[in-house]
Nucleic acid binder design. Structure first.
Lengths: 345, 345
DNA sequence: ATGAAAGCGCTAACAT
DNA sequence: ATGTTAGCGCTTTCAT
């Protein structure tokens, strides 16, 4: 590439033999009659030293050519891809779609692209991640509970891993809802309505998170003198809520049911509606968990416990945008839950 | 980089000054005592000429180092990133979550990563896409109805744009459900149950797709001699279903309601349940559209019309994996819808 | 079969 | 402020 080439406004040796590529920075520089680096500086998002007049020429050339930087090439230099991967089990595991929508929107706001990685099963996790782009992203948001903090650091050899599945250690960054206040408020609500006996329908007790959550319920219930007559296990799903509700002995009086997911609560509600044999929806208080938007439907007006999704996402983004700062400040961020009263509670 | 360096198993000049980078192909080559290109060939997924013994050494070295290729760098050479972007308005616009889950899973099966781009609003679309990675992906799947086929080709330099929003032209690739059979079957079902008068609750008639759908309904209804007593407009949402249902005049007898979305049908059902003034759920047949998994819930046992999601995704993937073939074969693929009978129909 | 070398498109020293 | 140059990590000619 000779100097005279660079100043010609026409096809260059480089562009000639490639048929109709996208315009490159090289092309822009040539058209503007400046050096490659000058063009790079002019187009850079942070203020780099360029003569105002020169910058204009470059910008004009870029516009004329319909130039758009290749993030891959940029990434190769800067080691920043602009890609953030969101690691989930299945899509449905993100119990709330709204959260997902807000998260992706905010990521885009701060110049990141969301890439969804669906793990599906435990075994494939490690191998899969190694092979994929996820291995080289700016940050990874771990929603999947298949991955622990150590593995996460091992997989992504970056510090930019944010644990959102409740599995954190002292070294990791994390954001986690604080279940206590919401549970406390829900139980208080029950107590105010003269609830004396409660049934607990929980998820897998293998999860640390769930164990802790159950402890919160029991502590709060005890505080108000509410007896836990039964504890049943489900897997957070609607179907498991149905199954659990059917196991409740009608003769065994209970005047409130607390479920650790809204989906289970929905299943419970549908069973209660079908039964005329002692447990009547009108007399029974039902509390869910997650505050799914589905609980706004007329047919599932279930009181629930949840956190502010925008708040949550904001915490995640704050860890993302300035990881240096994040490393100094608190590594584990929390967002409080609160009680959302509806018809059933 | 001297030859002796290459044969030493220790830190090389290159690795030394970069603090703890990920191992590169260079590192693998050095450890295996082969050239860079030999290592590349050995690790290539398609069979390149390498001595079997050499390949083994390279593979071993790669394993020992925990090497994993950098897709960005590969992409810079091959112009293939392994990224596919899914362009949507909002996440909720993908009326079915399941579809999303299946799609991402299958993309991963064929070695692609899904990147979600949330457009949010029309105006930002063009500018946004130009700046982002999406501009340089292997393919773009357009679910957002903000983007037409021409714009899509303009945005993404590639031909690998698949229109999934119903807005296609002769040049574009597309997959689209064929609404006719499902509608025909639903109407036939109504006719078999002595339905004589029907109400139609539709979405925005500005959409070509919706207009066509309505035409299908009217044709099928006419064929069975069913009278359309009223046509109301909603926006596909639950809330708009509620609003529409409240507008139905109780004195105006109708014995079936057809909605062009399940969400609207859910709203309608909830209104019907509340009303005791003439329209009784038991006597009224209700048909939705989309076959949402929510219609499997006890409280919304709504008969619906939908397509097989796996089938649909398979069509999309088929266009993706071999675009050359796709360009020869049919460019517009369809998946048939069918009727899913539940309690309400 | 194999290695050297030339890119892919860009950024970041490094001089000037 | 500006241009030159050396990478970023990989694939691919092109000789051998």
């Amino acid at each position: 590439m000779t100097l005279s080439d660079q100043h010609s406004g026409h096809q260059t040796t480089r562009t000639r033999h490639k048929k109709s590529r996208l315009p490159t920075l090289q092309d822009v520089a040539e058209r503007a009659g400046v050096s490659l680096s000058a063009a790079s500086r002019a187009l850079s998002r942070d203020q780099k030293p360029v003569a105002a007049e020169k910058r204009e020429r470059v910008l004009a050339a870029a516009r004329a050519l319909g130039y758009s930087a290749n993030p891959l090439a940029q990434g190769l230099s800067t080691r920043q891809t602009g890609l953030v991967s969101i690691i989930v089990n299945h899509i449905g595991d993100l119990s709330d779609l709204d959260l997902f929508d807000i998260l992706i929107g905010r990521l885009q706001d701060v110049g990141k692209q969301a890439s969804i990685v669906r793990l599906g099963s435990v075994k494939s996790a490690r191998d899969f991640l190694r092979g994929s782009i996820s291995y080289h992203v700016d940050a990874a948001l771990i929603f999947s509970d298949f991955i622990g903090p150590r593995q996460a650091r091992d997989f992504f050899r970056t510090n930019h891993v944010i644990m959102l599945n409740g599995r954190q250690d002292s070294q990791s960054l994390s954001v986690q809802p604080d279940d206590a206040p919401g549970i406390q408020q829900a139980v208080e609500n029950a107590a105010r309505h003269q609830v004396e006996t409660a049934t607990l329908i929980t998820g897998r007790e293998s999860s640390e998170l769930e164990k802790q959550r159950i402890a919160f319920y029991r502590t709060a219930l005890a505080r108000y003198g509410i007896l836990v007559s039964t504890q049943l296990h489900g897997d957070y799903s609607y179907a498991s809520g149905v199954t659990a509700a059917r196991q409740i002995d009608p003769r065994h009086y209970t005047d409130a049911i607390f479920c650790t997911s809204d989906a289970m609560a929905m299943g419970v509600l549908d069973v209660l509606r079908d039964r005329e044999d002692g447990i009547i929806p009108g007399r029974m208080r039902l509390y869910g968990f997650d505050n799914l938007s589905l609980t706004d439907l007329h047919s599932y007006p279930i009181s629930s416990i949840g956190f502010d999704k925008r708040d949550y996402v904001e915490q995640v983004v704050s860890l993302l945008v300035d990881p240096a700062q994040a490393r100094k400040g608190p590594r584990h961020l929390g967002v409080p839950t609160r009680f959302y009263g509806r018809q059933t509670g």
